[in-house]
Amino acid sequence: MQMLGTFIKPMHREGIKFVAIFAAVTVVLFLISEVLGWIGVGLTVWCYYFFRDPERVTPPREGLVVSPADGIVSLIEPAVPPAELGMPDQPLTRVSVFMSVFNCHVNRTPIAGEITAIAYRPGKFFNASLDKASVDNERNSLAIRMADGRSLAVVQIAGLVARRIVCFTEIGAKMQTGERFGLIRFGSRLDVYLPEGVEPMVEIGQTMVAGETVLADLLLPERA
């Protein structure tokens, strides 16, 4: 059973209709050609794995900012948070996590707090690994106010293939660190804007696990 659980993961409900569509197309492909049918099987399995939603073990200590997405750290640089969130117009450290079409795409809250703003903005669909994607691409931005009064921003950004950003939470919701808050379909990126003075604990090229990998420690400056 443990070995079976290694390969078979729970699937998020958002993926049910897509897997059903892929499976239906696969049946038609088998009627046309066995070779095409098996290609359809492979694509259906890929679709199932794209929407996989495995359980994650979030670090229990307060003050730890965790990755909101599976993927690779593609950018670490100072940037102003999206204007639509109403946060101060000053650069903060932005950590970008790029998700390929093979990563799990369920997004998780990087820190516990209250959702004080959610702002969707339509846009273009450049490759999500590019710097200009943060400004030009379709995005959905959230501001999270932590217990100490500081705010952190997390932004879902659609990519070259992605065409649908899904957000499960709402303004006023009290979220826990690592809690599921959204999903982006088919390749995308998540940006985290750390509070002023907080330094990231990750490097470009590092592999991230949503809800588990620590991005930063809010208590580190106080301890120092």
Rank of each mutant, 00 (worst) to 15 (best):
Met1Pro: 06
Met1Glu: 07
Thr6Val: 08
Thr6Lys: 15
Phe7Met: 10
Phe7Gln: 04
Phe7Glu: 04
Ile8Asp: 04
Pro10Val: 01
Pro10Thr: 03
His12Arg: 11
Arg13Met: 07
Lys17Ala: 11
Phe18Gln: 11
Ile21Cys: 10
Phe22Cys: 13
Phe22Trp: 12
Ala23Gly: 10
Thr26Trp: 05
Val27Ile: 15
Leu31Glu: 12
Ile32Asn: 05
Ile32Gln: 13
Ser33Asn: 14
Glu34Gln: 09
Val35Asp: 07
Trp38Gly: 00
Trp38Tyr: 14
Gly42Asp: 06
Leu43Thr: 02
Leu43Ile: 05
Tyr48Ala: 14
Tyr49Leu: 14
Phe50Asp: 04
Pro54Arg: 07
Pro54Asn: 05
Glu55Ala: 11
Val57Tyr: 01
Thr58Met: 02
Thr58Phe: 03
Arg61Asp: 15
Val66Met: 09
Asp70Phe: 12
Asp70Cys: 13
Gly71Ile: 05
Ile72Thr: 14
Val73Ile: 15
Val73Gly: 00
Val73Lys: 14
Ser74Lys: 13
Glu77Leu: 14
Pro78Trp: 12
Pro78Gln: 14
Pro78Cys: 07
Val80Tyr: 06
Val80Ile: 15
Pro82Glu: 07
Pro82Tyr: 03
Pro88Arg: 06
Asp89Gln: 12
Pro91His: 02
Thr93Trp: 09
Val95Gln: 09
Phe98Pro: 15
Met99Ile: 01
Met99Asn: 03
Met99Pro: 15
Val101Trp: 04
Phe102Ser: 03
Asn107Leu: 15
Gly113Thr: 10
Gly113Lys: 13
Glu114Tyr: 04
Ala117Phe: 00
Ala119Asn: 07
Pro122Phe: 06
Gly123Glu: 02
Lys124Tyr: 01
Phe126Asp: 13
Ser129Glu: 09
Asp136Pro: 00
Asp136Arg: 10
Asp136Cys: 08
Asp136Gln: 09
Asn137Asp: 06
Glu138Pro: 07
Glu138Trp: 06
Asn140Gln: 05
Ser141Thr: 05
Ser141Glu: 07
Ala143Lys: 12
Met146Arg: 13
Asp148Pro: 04
Arg150Asp: 06
Leu152Trp: 12
Leu152His: 04
Leu152Thr: 04
Leu152Tyr: 11
Val154Arg: 08
Ala158Arg: 00
Leu160Gly: 05
Val161Met: 06
Ala162Gly: 11
Ala162Thr: 14
Ala162Pro: 08
Ile165Gln: 13
Ile165Phe: 03
Val166Ser: 09
Cys167Ala: 09
Phe168Gly: 02
Ile171Pro: 11
Ile171Asn: 12
Lys174Thr: 06
Met175Pro: 01
Gly178Asp: 09
Arg180Tyr: 05
Leu183Tyr: 15
Ile184Val: 02
Ile184His: 13
Ile184Arg: 10
Arg189Pro: 04
Leu190Met: 15
Val192Asn: 02
Leu194Cys: 03
Pro195Gln: 04
Pro195Glu: 01
Pro200Tyr: 01
Pro200Glu: 04
Met201Ile: 02
Val202Cys: 11
Val202Arg: 09
Val202Phe: 10
Glu203Val: 14
Val209Glu: 13
Ala210Phe: 01
Ala210Arg: 00
Thr213Tyr: 06
Leu215His: 10
Asp217Glu: 08
Leu218Glu: 11
Pro221Arg: 14
Pro221Asp: 01
Glu222Asp: 15
Ala224Met: 09
Ala224His: 04
